[in-house]
């Protein structure tokens, strides 16, 4: 199944990736190949196979006790942020 140019652009937008228009034909082809590969699964017989939410059969989620185990380390973490003020991370204005 071939992806259209518009579908590739849509996927890029949803992933917030900016693609060089010159690269688009290449993405169309390579993404189409990936989708085709996944499409092969549709030819497999799945009668009697229960849907899985996870590839680790027989394992279930472990739970943690409701305890505060983290300390305030925001000074350390905020050293990675491009802009900080009054303890807040600053980002380009989010339209309301």
């Amino acid at each position: 199944m071939a992806l259209t140019r518009a579908q590739v652009e849509g996927i890029a937008h949803l992933a917030r990736l900016e693609l060089d228009p010159a690269e688009l034909p290449q993405y169309e082809q390579s993404l189409s190949r990936i989708v085709d590969f996944i499409g092969e699964l549709e030819r497999a017989s799945t009668a009697g196979v229960a849907p899985m939410a996870h590839p680790l059969p027989g394992l279930a989620q472990r739970l943690r006790a409701d305890e505060v185990t983290e300390r305030d380390e925001h000074d350390l973490y905020q050293r990675n942020a491009p802009a900080v003020a009054s303890g807040l991370y600053l980002v380009p204005k989010v339209i309301e």
């Binding site: 185990t69 983290e70 303890g87 807040l88 991370y89």
Partner: peptide
């Protein structure tokens, strides 16, 4: 007391990003 997926505190009104 703590968050759904981490051990950070959930108390209301703490200084920004300290939890």
């Amino acid at each position: 007391r703590s968050k759904i997926f981490s051990g950070a505190a959930t108390a209301y009104g703490a200084p920004p990003n300290t939890q």
